[in-house]
Amino acid sequence: MSALAVRNLVKTYPNGVQALRGLDLDVPEGDFFALLGPNGAGKTTLIGIVTSLINKTSGEVRVFGHSIDTELAAAKSCIGVVPQELNINYWDSVENIVTTQAGFYGMTRRQAAQRAETCLKQLQLWDRRRDSGRSLSGGMKRRLMIARALMHEPRLLVLDEPTAGVDIEIRRSMWQFLREINRSGTTIILTTHYLEEAENLCRQVAIIDHGRIIERDRMSNVLRKLHAEIFVLSLREPLGAAPRLAGYEVSLVGDHEIEVVVTRQQDLNGVFAALTAAGIQVISMRNKANRLEELFLRLTAREPPTDGQR
């Protein structure tokens, strides 16, 4: 059975913006699924409709077979959601926030208190249980939203950019936690801007753009399409023109900077060997865009963003 089945989903906002244009998607039960796409592609609208925060224009959505049109309560019972925007009651205590949410799903106070201890300990918030939501750091607020979403033990956990603004150490501990939840049988749908996150966690990926799924495959297959990366090299001495490096595409982007395209069949050693032979010294190097941006650009055939647009 599909954890999530979406058919011909359309959403047109009152201002005329068509966020979803006949979107179809299936997420198998037990999967760790990445939903990727550029800003404004329709990811948050899709999640909003699945979690009933946004009314759809037309189409069909089923959660573990329950239609959101005819069995909304059953569908909602299966879902836990961690939205992109912080949406906790800042004046309430951490413990109250999670137990109140559990009560909304029909858990008694005793059940909720026991479950709260488990969830808050798992997300390293137990020591802060008496503190108000506003006193938590950004990372803690994110973890609190995950704990809240897990209180009723959902079969499908939807995470919309859960690690945005979270430092790398906490991000990695959250990844570990999410892997464990997934291993215990919870299906997870993750939207993220960090390709590293999707690569690390997800087995399947769908890429959404302009309200449609433009790619749906195993993560490994999609990543193979990333066959080239662009590196920006800073040079010690200024150059008047782009140097000729046999087999590499090179362009001059400033007096002291060149861009080099390196395909999967090539390597950086060749670039440095050619530069050394030409007497050009490199003082630093960086990726022009992150890999996710490149992936989007390739799949959506868009012009690369300029630095000012990023």
Binding site: S52, L53, A73, K76, N89, Q101
Partner: peptide, 17 residues
């Protein structure tokens, strides 16, 4: 205030009648 702070969503995503 629940609407503005968005924690009204806690109720809207739950299967409450």
């Amino acid at each position: 205030s629940a609407k503005m702070q968005r924690h009204l969503e806690e109720m809207l995503v739950a299967p409450m009648a």
